[in-house]
Amino acid sequence: MLIAITEKSQRFISYEYTRNVLQQLRQQGKFYCPQCQQPVQLKIGTINIPHFAHIANQACDRLFAEGESVLHLKGKIQLFEWLKKLGHTVELEPYLSKLAQRPDILLTKQDQLVAVEFQCSSISYEKWRARTDGYKKERIEALWLFQTPPKKSSLGIHKISITPLMQQVITRPLQGLPYIVTFDANTSQFIYWSNLLHLQGHTFITKVQCLPSEKQGYPFFEPKSISKDEFNRYWQLYKKTGEQYVYQRLLRSKKGVQDPFLRSCYEMSFSLESMPPYVGLPVKNSEAIPCFSIEWQTMLHYFCRQLQLQPHELCKGDIQLFLHQLGVEPTAASVQAVEDYSVVLEKAFSSTDSISAICEQVYVHLFAIDTVC
């Protein structure tokens, strides 16, 4: 921890002093934990950032974090100084007695309190949920910033795996595709995983962008939608991944034509080597259906043929029945994903069924625009 209380009951921030000054102060006085009031030791190493820690065998009943990594201490300082330079009222490591919680930073913006949590280490969903709910109960907004994972800050358009917990902090704008902002304490940069397009499971296609902290504002800047040319790169990567998925599914399936997906392909006369261009389309809300779009959309066409209906003619009850058969919970988001696919399909076929026409309709629908520039 970076904060301690002096013998004069004053808050003391360790990183604001040089090591030489800290060594003198350590000999002259004592420091105490802001929560449990027990003595703490000031650690002044040559590698780690100067910080405080409880004396061995002492137990802080309020669970002040111990063993923080260099990266976490560094990132916490960088974020604190960044918010101060922006002119915000911020407090480092405040103790919230009502919650028995200590956010890394507490930001006061007008009448709104924001608890900033810089997360470097792994944390369980249950602990994350409890802390988030605790803040919410006291009408404090929780801002979780995850340390940018190694090898996931390479700029450009990539496939990327996002953990279930990080998916909880995805920002979903009214228009365009969702995004996540992470922070890289190694470079003091905010990394945007923008325009997230779900593939399957925890895999997405994203455009990775970076913004140095000195250029970042708060609230965060929202990333722009990708261009039509960039979407074509998304499209190519998406379709290529779909082809690989079908090939691997064919090799690994032990059920043969009893496999629901392969059975649907057989009944619809879909060639696994060259699937129709209108299946495997990216649509909004697709992360609500865990399997790859090429699978559930093929099975949807077979389901529709059995009902002698077109996808856009399905009622909500039909869609819920289809999702049940697929083994997917018929939530509002999963139903909407099927409806979104039906809309794209109907618009694409109303003019032409060429690949370019379908691609254009997908782009228009994903980014909620009226015309394509």
Score class of each variant (00 low, 15 high):
residue 15 Y to N: 10
residue 41 Q to K: 14
residue 57 N to Q: 14
residue 359 C to R: 12
residue 71 L to N: 09
residue 275 M to V: 12
residue 296 W to L: 00
residue 59 A to K: 15
residue 227 S to H: 10
residue 136 K to I: 13
residue 102 R to M: 04
residue 21 V to Y: 11
residue 281 L to Q: 04
residue 308 Q to G: 13
residue 245 Y to P: 06
residue 120 C to M: 00
residue 180 I to T: 02
residue 149 P to L: 05
residue 73 L to S: 02
residue 10 Q to L: 13
residue 148 T to L: 07
residue 266 Y to P: 01
residue 10 Q to T: 12
residue 108 T to C: 04
residue 266 Y to A: 09
residue 168 Q to P: 10
residue 170 I to C: 02
residue 202 H to F: 02
residue 306 Q to F: 06
residue 212 P to T: 03
residue 48 N to M: 03
residue 145 L to M: 04
residue 357 A to K: 12
residue 116 V to I: 15
residue 295 E to V: 11
residue 235 W to L: 11
residue 328 V to R: 01
residue 68 E to Q: 07
residue 299 M to P: 01
residue 247 Y to K: 13
residue 157 I to G: 10
residue 175 Q to C: 01
residue 28 Q to W: 06
residue 351 S to W: 08
residue 75 G to I: 00
residue 363 Y to F: 15
residue 292 F to N: 08
residue 359 C to P: 01
residue 360 E to A: 13
residue 168 Q to W: 08
residue 252 R to G: 10
residue 190 F to R: 08
residue 32 Y to Q: 05
residue 155 L to A: 15
residue 6 T to G: 01
residue 213 S to Y: 11
residue 88 H to F: 15
residue 78 Q to K: 04
residue 80 F to P: 05
residue 341 Y to L: 01
residue 213 S to G: 06
residue 122 S to F: 10
residue 336 Q to P: 00
residue 135 Y to R: 03
residue 284 K to M: 13
residue 96 L to A: 05
residue 297 Q to Y: 04
residue 33 C to S: 06
residue 148 T to N: 07
residue 66 E to S: 14
residue 66 E to K: 12
residue 230 E to V: 09
residue 4 A to P: 07
residue 195 N to H: 09
residue 94 P to A: 13
residue 80 F to I: 06
residue 365 H to A: 14
residue 44 I to T: 03
residue 242 G to A: 07
residue 312 H to T: 07
residue 68 E to L: 06
residue 114 V to F: 10
residue 124 S to N: 04
residue 317 G to I: 15
residue 36 C to M: 04
residue 305 R to K: 14
residue 350 S to Q: 09
residue 255 K to R: 14
residue 84 K to E: 12
residue 295 E to Q: 12
residue 68 E to K: 06
residue 371 T to C: 11
residue 156 G to Y: 03
residue 370 D to P: 04
residue 81 E to H: 11
residue 335 V to I: 12
residue 1 M to V: 10
residue 145 L to F: 00
residue 87 G to Y: 05
residue 369 I to V: 14
residue 207 K to E: 08
residue 74 K to P: 03
residue 165 L to Y: 06
residue 9 S to T: 13
